[in-house]
């Protein structure tokens, strides 16, 4: 004998309660989000390997952690660790004196990989795999990639025009000025 109030049939007051972790639903992230994340991660690893092999390995580790965190562990914390390792790899590539162009690609691809993975996890919790989410994932990943491309375009343009022969410190000061300006508008 099972008290059904705890089983399939909830009481009326439970009906509106959030059942985001219901056992009957497939709460894994939608396949599309996982695919986008893995592809972006592969791009990041490829670009990092071109820039600096050792740093590429570190970025590869970060991307692997993100992939595991999406598919197996379903944990945002693990995703953050993966992204952190990727950023460390990025810094390491900078340390070895890699040219800035592949590093920009790594940065955007890493951001998209983490973003798609994290978005996929929240989608999995809200609607689950099996509910249609293709359009949602496409729009989200598309805008993240677009923002990255625009940012890279602006940054690289400023670098190419303004920083010819300027020391790096000047670049950083320029960036800080931009941040101060942006937050003042905010």
């Amino acid at each position: 004998m099972v008290a059904v109030t705890g089983g399939r049939v909830p009481t009326r007051s439970d009906a509106s309660a959030r059942d985001d972790r219901s056992p009957e639903r497939d709460t894994r992230p939608p396949t599309e989000a996982v695919v986008v994340s893995v592809v972006a991660g592969a791009v990041a690893v490829g670009a990092a390997l071109i820039a600096a092999p050792l740093a590429g390995a570190v970025v590869g580790l970060g991307v692997a952690v993100i992939a595991v965190g999406t598919t197996l562990l379903a944990s945002e914390r693990v995703l953050l660790w993966g992204a952190g390792i990727g950023v460390v790899g990025l810094a390491a590539a900078g340390y070895t004196g890699a040219p800035p162009e592949p590093l920009l690609v790594v940065a955007v691809a890493l951001a998209v990989a983490w973003d798609a993975a994290d978005h996929g996890l929240s989608l999995g919790r809200h609607v689950g795999r099996g509910a249609g989410a293709r359009r949602n994932v496409a729009v989200h990943a598309g805008s993240a990639a677009l923002v990255g491309v625009v940012a890279v375009g602006v940054v690289y343009l400023v670098y190419a025009l303004a920083a010819g022969g300027q020391p790096v410190t000047a670049l950083a000061l320029l960036l800080l000025g931009a941040i101060a300006l942006a937050s003042a508008f905010k």
Partner: peptide, 16 residues
Amino acid sequence: LRQPGPVLAGAVGVGY
């Protein structure tokens, strides 16, 4: 490190 790569990558991060 006096390297432009991380600075530019950081600038992209600020964009995000």
